[in-house]
């Protein structure tokens, strides 16, 4: 088995190309087709760590997994009613967003955001929507909406 690591710039370049191709095909709708990206990682690396059944504990577990695997640096957040604002610094995928912005495409996918949404939905059964990704001051600012309850199917 070849365990040589590939350059990060190569991986991010491919992610950018895939996202850009998806944007070119689906436009603003691309965002909604990438909400489950990261699900396997979530199940393998995040879910086993989540012991808490509150947002603070869930976010702490996701942050711990991402930091331990070297995906992100600092992660901070604030809650205001249903709005969850997450600030992520030092994300290894940040160049993907920079490349998209340089081509006039608003960033529409964030793996840490997907993991947070998957965690809250899995542990609290509360739907989560990523409303916005802003790249500011060297960090990504995520605006997420956490809904009270999932509409009943019966």
């Amino acid at each position: 088995m070849n365990d040589k690591q590939i350059p990060l710039s190569y991986a991010n370049g491919l992610i950018h190309d895939l996202e850009k191709a998806f944007w070119d095909e689906r436009g603003k709708g691309a965002r909604f087709r990438t909400t489950s990206v990261g699900r396997d990682y979530f199940r393998e690396r995040c879910l086993p760590r989540i012991q808490a059944d509150d947002t603070d504990g869930i976010l702490a577990a996701v942050r711990e997994a991402l930091q331990q695997d070297g995906v992100v640096g600092e992660v901070t957040y604030t809650r205001e009613d249903r709005l969850l604002r997450v600030r992520i610094q030092g994300c290894v995928h940040r160049p993907v967003e920079d490349q998209l912005i340089a081509k006039g495409v608003e960033p529409f996918t964030c793996i840490p955001a997907n993991l947070i949404a998957l965690a809250i939905e899995d542990k609290l059964d509360q739907p989560v929507e990523l409303a916005e990704i802003k790249v500011e001051g060297g960090a990504c600012q995520l605006l997420m909406v956490v809904f009270e309850a999932r509409p009943t199917l019966e």
Partner: peptide
């Protein structure tokens, strides 16, 4: 009813996101 709940939930999430931004 299930379809209505899924449709309403999906629309509600997306339009709420559009509203808060």
């Amino acid at each position: 009813r299930s379809l209505g709940a899924l449709a309403g939930g999906g629309s509600g999430r997306r339009f709420t996101s559009e509203f808060v931004t």
